[in-house]
Design a protein around this nucleic acid. Sequence first.
DNA 1: TTTGAATAAAGAAAAAAATCTATAATTAAA
DNA 2: TTTAATTATAGATTTTTTTCTTTATTCAAA
Lengths: 230, 230
Amino acid sequence: MNIIERSIVFTFKMSEARKNKKSDQVPEPTLRRLPTYLFYLEKIREKGELTISAPVIGKALKCDPTQVVKDLSVTGVKGKPRVGYNIYELCHALEDFLGFNRVNEAFLVGAGNLGAALMSYQERQTLGFKIIAAFDVDKDKIGQQVGGTHILEYSKLFNLSNRLNVKIAILTTPNEVAQDVAEDLVNCGVKAIWNFTLTNLDLPANIIVQNTSMSAYAAVLLQRLKDASE
Amino acid sequence: MNIIERSIVFTFKMSEARKNKKSDQVPEPTLRRLPTYLFYLEKIREKGELTISAPVIGKALKCDPTQVVKDLSVTGVKGKPRVGYNIYELCHALEDFLGFNRVNEAFLVGAGNLGAALMSYQERQTLGFKIIAAFDVDKDKIGQQVGGTHILEYSKLFNLSNRLNVKIAILTTPNEVAQDVAEDLVNCGVKAIWNFTLTNLDLPANIIVQNTSMSAYAAVLLQRLKDASE
DNA sequence: TTTGAATAAAGAAAAAAATCTATAATTAAA
DNA sequence: TTTAATTATAGATTTTTTTCTTTATTCAAA
């Protein structure tokens, strides 16, 4: 194969990769597990440990050790045989990979119970981003503060988004207004919406929507309980 | 094959099925989708529609129509070609399958923001179970009421669990006490724990633990946003 | 220094899940 | 009554994810 043929093959492979971007995406199950590793490792690090092996992590987190190795490999951190991983390095790499050490700013719309929970959640535990402003239409809530974040009148969203360049929004409104609010958010430049409502949002294809329904987990729990009693 | 040979084959198959119970378990991805179907169908039913086809559901929920058919088939409901499913029948079957129409009673421990959110959640939206009592150690919270449920002194858990036969518990305590509380709950007869803490609970194998970390979703969202901007 | 045990890493195999395809049933329109 | 279009259903295929296997590396002990 000469240099031209090679470059053709190369070009082909590149466009293939670009076409189905999914190929180089980290699998969702892995992404979901990564924070669990991070929080476990942080706990171990606080105990003064310096290294940890995949079998030990696997035992603690009740999962397959080779799964652990595969998952952690996305960070690029190399472990040493007979020793394991450097905990400090691994924590840092995980935080970096997950983006938990960057300031990912987010809006929150709907400061009801769940909204307030997420606002206070960010104080204690790393959620992955900082809610810089919450919005609501309820006069009683407006002006209040939860978890260090102010609740503002919803209409202020439009002014504020002009000045700030916020890409992430958390949607915890009632179902009925979810679609309208989501469209407002997209118009304000939001690129990713974490949707806690039961509304199936109809938005442009380039907008990332992460649907999170508490019912989904409840369904799995109830079913496994049913399975167990049979 | 005579009758005896047949019965041997039959016995073998039965024990196989019992051995790896997983085989007849409904896949977790399907279980997670079922509440989404239910809430969508309820919305459509309210509009007065009587039937709906899998392709229509698939278009609305942005998923493959054959996926819809496979998922809905777990309820046993049959659709008619060229017509689709009877919405009323399907809603009922889904509620029944998911156990959402039964009274699944649950305890909640840790009436902080997230706990309170779940308590108020059950009012508006079907969570799948009814939180009949919440427990906390915070004097300010004890005696209060959220979403129609009273917050009781934690120590009352032990008396109450003797009288009531509650199988499900929601764990929304701080991480530090999660393991201890979980063990208490198991001693009180709880069989399934919905764990919102970041603690990896170490409990008997027969106890069902559903770990739900907000960070897991956040991680996926952040990553997809990163993927999109590359 | 040598040997052996532990473990990461890479790749193969298996399992699980999603998607595609073909078939048969049904109904509305011709 | 017949035909064509729609759609559920079942099964095959593909893709994704997990688990298993092998290999090579490293460190501790002999």
